[in-house]
Every structure is written in C-alpha cells, then in structure tokens.
C-alpha cells in the first residue's frame, strides 16, 4: 500500500539497504556457527576470524555423531518435544474450541487463571516442581519433562487455537448439527479439517518451545542417559570447551529440527495472528 507512493530512487535504495541490514543481522550468527563447524581444527586458530575458511571438512560432524552422546541427546529431545507438542496440541485444541464456541459460567475465571500462568516468573515453581518430581521418583525421566512442558505450553496454545477456531464460521457446524451430526461429529468432520493449518502451527510452536527449554531440564535431569540436547550441549561445552569445531557442529545439528518446523509454519504465522488480531 505504502509502496505505491515510495517511488523516489533514494527511498527505494534506502529500503533495500535496510532490508539487507536486517537479513545480514539475522543470518550472520548462524552463518558463523556453520562456518566454524566446517573449518578444519588446525585452521581454527589461524583463520578463526576469517569470513570464509580456506578448507572445508565434515570431520566435526562425523566426530559428534559417532564418538559422542549427541545422538542420544538428540533422540531424548525428539521424544520430549514430539510428546509435548502432540499432547499439548490435543488438550489445547479442545480447550480453545470450548473458549471459541461456548459461553459458560466460569469462562472468565479460567481465562484469568490461564493468563496468570503467563505472567508469573516460571522460575518460581522450579523448586516445588523439583521436590514434587523427586518425591514421585521421576527425576531423570523424560516423562516428567513432557508433563511439565505440556503444562507450560497449554495456555498459549489454547489462545492460539481459539483464534484459529474463531476464524471458522460457526454456521458451518450449525448446518452440520441441523443435518443430524452431534457436536463432536461436527467438530471432527467439519471444523478440524479446516483448522489443520492452525493445528500445524500450534504443533510447531510447542515443538520449538520444548526443544529449546533449558533451565527445568537442567534441574530435573542430571544423568547422561536422559539429557536433552540443551543440557547435553551445555555439559559438553563446560567439559570440553576447546573443541570449538565439535561444539559448533553439535549446535548446527540442534538447529535442524527447529528450522524445519519453522520453515513449515512461518507462512501461517502472520496469517494466524492476523485473524486473531481482527477478532480480538
């Protein structure tokens, strides 16, 4: 819209320069991570700060995959993130549907409770959670992480799903229900297929959040077998802090799943929030 008027060459150049700055700022740290990861160990100190290394190697990736525990950390993180994303999305879709389609007593109270969980410092409950999980004998288990992460992510996922449901006309299900469907059938056959992009986006959000969580995982996991990727990487860094190439190769690997999900969801991101913004 604004673009129509900005036809002066100076303004256009300025705009592209600004965009280039943003892209460079966003990508540079990631480029650097990948660059050190493919630089041969011998060259790191002599060419550590050169923009492009003179030789490339995939040795660091090989070492990380074959000689360290990162494959196990990766698997643990995948289990936790996929488990959390799947459970949270199902629970949040149900709750978001209730918020979107029903007016009922206690609705405002429950919304308020969910908002409160987004406001207080999560670290406040790190000590009680640790004691409860320890008392249940669930320290060092991935299950405890999945349960904790699920709870953390439900409120946001619920509001997100609600905005997606709000974007679907109520008439569609009403028509289905007049034709003899029960509400649940109408939800399953008519509404859910239309919210698939929303479900995908929510899955992606939660997956990324669970994949990145560090502090609760540090607190609840200390055995090497159950470490998630963040905990494993941090332990690795504090133990072998000179293996630059290997650390960065591990970092690049940690980046892969969240980037895949991100590429998948980023199209829906602004779109989903727009429908929410228009409604709200």
């Amino acid at each position: 819209m604004n673009a129509l008027r900005q036809s002066s060459p100076l303004a256009v150049t300025g705009k592209y320069l600004a965009l280039a700055f943003y892209v460079a700022f966003a990508l540079f740290p990631l480029y650097w991570l990948a660059k050190i990861a493919v630089t041969p160990d011998k060259l790191i100190f002599s060419e550590g700060t050169a923009l492009i290394p003179s030789k490339f190697t995939f040795e660091n990736f090989q070492t990380v995959l074959l000689q360290t525990d990162f494959v196990a950390y990766f698997r643990n993180s995948l289990i936790v993130s996929i488990g959390t994303a799947a459970i949270t999305t199902v629970i949040a879709a149900a709750a978001g549907y209730a918020f979107s389609r029903f007016d009922f007593r206690g609705k405002r109270l429950i919304i308020a409770l969910m908002l409160i969980t987004q406001m207080f410092p999560l670290l406040m409950i790190i000590a009680p959670i640790y004691k409860i999980v320890a008392a249940l004998g669930l320290l060092n288990s991935l299950t405890s992480l999945i349960i904790v992460y699920t709870a953390f992510n439900i409120p946001f996922a619920t509001f997100l799903m609600q905005s997606f449901f709000d974007g679907i006309p109520k008439d569609l299900e009403d028509a289905g229900m007049i034709d003899g469907c029960t509400r649940f059938e109408a939800l399953r056959k008519i509404v859910l297929p239309l919210t698939l992009p929303g479900l995908g986006a929510t899955l992606g959000f939660i997956f990324t959040a669970a994949w990145s969580e560090l502090l609760f995982a540090l607190m609840l996991i200390n055995s090497n077998d159950a470490m998630t990727f963040p905990v494993g990487l941090l332990t690795f860094v504090s133990k072998f802090s000179v293996d630059w190439g290997q650390m960065m190769a591990a970092g690049v690997l940690a980046l892969v799943p969240s980037c895949l999900f991100f590429i998948f969801i980023q199209r829906y991101l602004v779109q989903g929030l727009t429908t929410g913004a228009v409604k709200g």
Binding site: P29, P230, L233, L255, S258, F261, F262, Q266
Partner: peptide
C-alpha cells in the same frame, strides 16, 4: 522467512552462538 529465523533458534543455542 530469513529475518524471522532467529526466533526459531533455540535460546540456549542463540546464547552459545
């Protein structure tokens, strides 16, 4: 897609990077 990418980078990794 490119400028939104940092948001998808896990925080511990942003910190280390």
């Amino acid at each position: 897609a490119l400028v939104f990418l940092p948001w998808a980078v896990p925080t511990f990794l942003s910190a280390l990077t």
